[in-house]
């Protein structure tokens, strides 16, 4: 297994996916930290290409999924899968942050638990907190109580977000 730098890895991804990458860059934490700078890959793909990209990355190393973040973009939800490759090598670990956007009218995303079993808890969390429909995992609550009202998603910033009567002490 060859250990690639962030730039080499991005080049490989670009070769493979070309136009299908919506965003692709290597971001550096230069100013904010001591040298050598930490460099991380940030890419955005369509949800149809998402699993293919993950499988492509798995050819280099078994990825460590830290977590999937989610942001409400208005009409869309952006999911960001924070995945790290080449763990265990000094200064060599590379984080690949894969952004995938799903429309709120059809918030479906395929599960990746068949590739990375540890992804289950974060996928369940996206389901209950952001109202993303992860296809292929059970529709059960993880962090929210079983009797939490249906159709309320705490991280949304639209009408499905928590109302004032739910939010009492946190504002």
């Amino acid at each position: 297994m060859d250990v690639l730098s962030a730039d080499e890895l991005l080049e490989k991804i670009q070769q493979k996916f070309g136009e299908r990458l919506k965003e692709a860059e290597v971001k550096e934490r230069a100013m904010t930290d001591a040298p050598p700078p930490i460099r991380r890959v940030w890419v955005r793909v369509d949800r149809e290409d998402f699993r293919e990209l993950l499988k492509f990355l798995m050819e280099f190393d078994f990825p460590h999924l830290a977590v999937a973040s989610a942001a409400d973009m208005g009409d869309e939800i952006e999911l960001i899968y924070h995945i790290s490759l080449f763990q265990g090598k000094r200064f060599k670990e590379v984080y690949v942050n894969i952004k995938v956007r799903v429309p709120k009218s059809d918030p479906k995303i395929p599960t990746i638990t068949d590739l990375i079993p540890g992804a289950l808890s974060t996928e369940l969390e996206k389901q209950e907190m952001m109202g993303v429909d992860v296809v292929g995992i059970p529709k059960e609550k993880l962090f929210l109580p079983w009797d939490f009202p249906e159709g309320v998603y705490p991280w949304r910033r639209d009408e499905t977000g928590p109302k004032d009567d739910v939010v009492k002490y946190v504002r």
């Binding site: 078994f62 460590h64 763990q87 265990g88 200064f91 670990e93 984080y95 540890g118 992804a119």
Partner: peptide
Amino acid sequence: LKLCAVGPTARASGLAIDVRHDEPY
């Protein structure tokens, strides 16, 4: 590895991962 373990729990299973070592900050 597959369940994305971290920290001493992962290291006790032989997974040599440590953020301080892999991506020092």
